[in-house]
Amino acid sequence: MRIELEDLSKTFDSGREVLRGVNFDDEVTSLAIIGPSGGGKSTLLRVIGGLLSPTSGSVRVDGREIVQDERHLTQYRREVGFVFQQGGLFHHMTGRENIIRPLVVVHGMGEKEAGRRADELLARFGLEEDAHKLPAALSGGQRQRIAIARAIAPGPRLLLLDEPTSALDPEYTTEVLDMINELSQSGIRFIIVTHEMGFARRACERAAFLYGGTILEYGSGRELFEAPKTKELGQFLGKMFEWQ
């Protein structure tokens, strides 16, 4: 899937300029966005996912520009899966219901078919026993895995993950990353914002280093992690690996 970002900028109402002229043009199969906090990673992911409109610039997916009005954006969001850092599951629905409801309401699936689809995914990721619980009764890792299952259930063209493991205890981080890796190997294209450098390096084909609202470096994991070209990336990696 080809993603083109042209001169993308985002300034919030508060006057904070988060993205300043992001340019990108490449085929994406698995991409990690890394960089320091406040560098604009989550904002960029939301713009790509159609959840935020850029102040200026454009996003093209497979040559088609995303029109920034609510009707087109709603349509576009239906083709993309999005996973939040936390709290993305609907609190008042069970895990299974979280998967089924969008399939029925948004994608026009029958109740039974949606149920089958949900059960199939839940079984595949060993979640069937806990899926009848409300999110509050699940572990953080289970919540995120169900959130990922919900995101991929309609068969989206692209999966976007915004720091899906940042709010998790280390023991749960692995189970979530394993799941993303498995999905990736089964052919699901994804972009992940992450602080898990090992995952960015080994499980993602490409990585982008976002710093001060622009992409400072872009390339394969090997290029970025072994031979950073900019001082900023060097310092960032130094900090990330200081205790590893």
């Binding site: 959840l51 709603t74 969001r77 709290g87 969008p102 994608h107 919900r150 309609p154």
Partner: peptide, 18 residues
């Protein structure tokens, strides 16, 4: 109501009335 709940609703493709 948590802001993320509303954002998640948009993310799964719900329109306003949904």
């Amino acid at each position: 109501i948590d802001e993320t709940q509303l954002e998640a609703a948009r993310a799964v493709g719900f329109n306003r009335s949904q």
